[in-house]
Amino acid sequence: MAVSEPGEATGVIDDATDKARSGGRPSSSAFSTPRGIRLAGRYALLGLVTFIVLFPVYTTIVASLKPGNRVLQNPLVPNAFTLDIFREAWTEGRLGRFILNSLVVAVVVTVCQVATSVMSGYAFAMLDFPGRGVLFMVFLATLLVPLEATLVVNRRTIDSLGWLNSYQGLAAPFLATAFGTFLLRQVFLGFPDELRDAARIDGAGHTRFLWHVALPVVRPTVGALALFSFLSSWNQYLWPNLITTESDMNTVQSGLRSLRYSTLDKPNLLMAGTVIAAVPIFAALLVFQRQLVRGLTAGAVKG
């Protein structure tokens, strides 16, 4: 959650900058002063928003770099520096183990979500079968059921399968997503009929068509869905927290909690742990942010 904020904020800034550019153009020749004032106002506002968003990140990083006896003195001033805190947080918080768990779960969830979404999206868009409309509505309706409403039942199911404290337990409820199905259906709906007809004439069945023709074309959307799935899985807190009773199987976001409990008197350790947990996801967001936004809005106009 915390990590997604900077990314979103950057998106806001991009949007606003675009608007600033286009909005500023007509007035630029005649009234240069009002334009300057307007621009200054906009940047002031953007600066303020940036400050509000980045301030907690800044304090977290500053605290994570200070030794224990300096953390609460001048908390905003990085007047002391040590990397020991990171080392200690890494070992004491067992972050290596937790990150591995997060990675395994996130990869499994991502692969399965993409696979199920592509296939179901394809079916809803390209196949004509009785009850398709109703079934799709039912599918969409599950988007309205919040995770919290199914928590207890899901946990009991996982428990009765004997999957507490296991990768399958962590991943099982998230292997399919109505959102992904919806997204890919919209993309497939906009698919040129000519391509499908051409493939059919060449003797391609559904599998071959999907794999060799359709999938390459919708790759940007699939990529965005994959990144989105990975991010949401990585950032999961509640579910892993609920079904792990043994710390070995905790994921990183939920495992940070145990770092908090084990270091009540060392706030800097928790801060360092938070930074470590945020780094992989932050890097992923920076690299893929444009693709994520573009991919998710891809079906919007057409659908």
Binding site: M1, S4, L143, P146, S232, Y237, V293
Partner: peptide, 17 residues
């Protein structure tokens, strides 16, 4: 959809909190 994502995560965090 971004908003939904954010909302879901926020709700999760709130409940957890």
């Amino acid at each position: 959809m971004n908003r939904r994502f954010a909302f879901t995560m926020l709700a999760g965090v709130l409940v957890a909190a």
